[in-house]
Amino acid sequence: MSIVLGPNQYGKAENRLVRIDRDPDGHRITDLNVSVALSGDMTDTHLTGANDKVLPTDTQKNTVFAFARDGIGEIESYALRLARHFVNSQPSIQRARVSVGQYPWTRLEVGGSPAHHSFARSGEGTRTTVVNYDGAQAWVVSGITDLIVLNSTGSEFWGYIKDGYTTLKETDDRILATAVDATWRHAAAEGTDWGKSYTTARQSLLEAFAETHSLSLQQTLYAMGERVLTNCPEIVEVRLSLPNKHHFLVDLAPFGLDNPNEVFHADDRPYGLIEGTVQRDDAPPAGLAWS
């Protein structure tokens, strides 16, 4: 029996980067969390400690900030620039993965007009991208996390399996709430209007959630993924993770009160977790997209 080195990578994680674009008509904030992971010819480093093929993680951090000097633009374009730089500039690096999360800021209003340089963090969800590049091909996955949505009616749950441990009662009117974690794979890394694609995908998720009379969260998941693929031809696969944020009707009878489906206890855990993929049947191979 022999012992060998398996897959490995190294990088600088969670570089917090804020860029201020100081436009005369109003400042703009780009607030990012950037992680870099590199892999390649690192066998000697692991077996002997030789570092002649290692690009220090501190250098990776500096590169993340330096590349923001001339502007960031859409996070997919920024991540592609970084990934290609790391692979194309260093012979020992064969693959780069750059992950970016973008935190949303909303301009404050003063006297009914947008403030020049004052902002508040908004609850619109965190935009994300993960770019993988191997020196020949790039894969781009975009997405959104922590997009919190709720339907106060229009959701049912009944007809499920019942056994000796089942206590849940069927309902034809319940609150449906979730924190959407969605990622979507693009057919190509070039020629995509990343900003338009993200805006359309996000709006598609929201519209499908609002317009679907849900008999199960699984049904809603599929409707959301299907809507994204229908409205975004450049996207070939959508992956969704939807925690069921349970809201339980409070029994007010002990206090001599009724509860006509109005007062609920929001329970944060445990929660149902519904996950699934919606994809085109002719989607190109994923390659390294999801790795």
Rank of each mutant, 00 (worst) to 15 (best):
K196R: 14
L257Q: 14
D193G: 05
Y271P: 00
T166R: 10
G73N: 06
K53H: 13
K61V: 09
E262I: 11
L17S: 00
A136W: 09
I274H: 05
L273P: 01
F119A: 06
T48R: 15
S2L: 08
F255K: 11
S35R: 05
G195H: 07
N51Y: 03
P233H: 09
G112D: 05
G154K: 08
G125Q: 04
G159S: 08
A79T: 07
T277D: 02
T30G: 00
D268H: 12
H116Y: 11
G135M: 02
A179L: 06
V4G: 09
T129C: 15
A83M: 04
A138R: 01
I75R: 03
F157D: 03
T63L: 15
D193E: 11
R227W: 03
K162D: 11
L257F: 12
V110K: 15
L5S: 14
T106L: 14
N15W: 03
K169A: 14
H186E: 00
S197D: 10
E109A: 13
A283T: 06
N259Y: 10
Q137R: 15
R202Y: 02
A188E: 13
R28S: 10
G26N: 05
R107Q: 08
F65I: 13
N244S: 12
E237L: 03
N151G: 06
N88S: 13
V34E: 01
G112R: 06
H46N: 10
T183Y: 01
D173S: 13
A37D: 08
H246L: 06
A189G: 12
L215P: 11
M1C: 11
G272S: 09
S35P: 04
T230D: 14
T63V: 15
W290N: 01
V34C: 06
Q102C: 10
D25F: 06
I75L: 09
I144T: 07
N51I: 07
T166I: 08
L168S: 12
P91N: 12
K196G: 10
T126H: 07
R121C: 05
E190W: 00
G143A: 06
D41K: 15
G73R: 10
A115F: 05
L176H: 10
N8Y: 08
Q90R: 11
E156V: 11
L150C: 10
F255E: 11
H85M: 12
F65M: 13
S113I: 12
F248Y: 14
A208Y: 02
N151V: 00
R95C: 10
A289G: 04
N88K: 11
V36E: 01
V100S: 01
I75T: 06
G123H: 12
V236N: 01
D282Q: 05
K169N: 13
M1H: 12
S99F: 00
G287Q: 03
